[in-house]
Amino acid sequence: MEHYNMNLTVKVWRQKNSKDKGGFVSYQVKDISSEMSFLEMIDVLNEKLIVEGGEPIAFDHDCREGICGQCSLYINGKPHGPWMANTTCQLHMRAFKDGDTIVVEPWRAGAFPVIKDLMVDRSAFDRIIQAGGYISVNTGNAVDGNSLPINKDHADASFAAAMCIGCGACVAACKNSSAMLFLSAKVSHLALLPQGEPERKSRVLNMVAQMDKEGFGACTNTGACEATCPKEISISNIARLNKEYLFSSLSSDK
């Protein structure tokens, strides 16, 4: 692929803290290599800001390998930028051309309040996981991994759901700020495996209750989440979650 350098205008959301109203600030960045990642471009911009005595742009990132779910950013109207099945850290500058203006916003959702600039508080996801995204494991010697027979199709579907990295792009893309794709991935992941069986009913009921408490919207099956998910989590998981919820609520004791 041909290498080229570009000059860009980057319009970034700047917000001092959660109380600040915030607003867009435009920056000019020069000589950006097409082989840089998007976050490296922001690193370059931040170094320039620091040298100039300004405040660097705060943004979440960790592994920069597309697996940790820390990076976010709503780039040119799409979570994780223009590429399909991709995280922001894996978005490369060859997605843009010289002279482009790039608009960068944080995830927008009441349940994801902005901490600073492009960083949002996604601890609502942690609390949803705490409400039921776990399995009981006996202490003692490790059990042989092959002692539990698991249907291959279920194992595959479970693994596909377990791909969710909890980045929150589904919430960011959804017109209702619904966390149903995230939740359905977590519920499907465990509901499809024998290890998830003991808490199967209470898990889905508790996790949905926690999701509602966190202030996410309801799902309307538009499919925007599935289209933007960097890990291509299928929306069919949401229907599976609905089934789990319906049966668990019908058959619960109280």
Partner: peptide, 26 residues
Amino acid sequence: SNRSKRGVAYANNYGNKGSKWYSRSM
């Protein structure tokens, strides 16, 4: 209720990427 879940709107909207207009306009 769903409309109230996003306090600040996006400047650049996600729009029709991946979802049909009528599914967003129920």
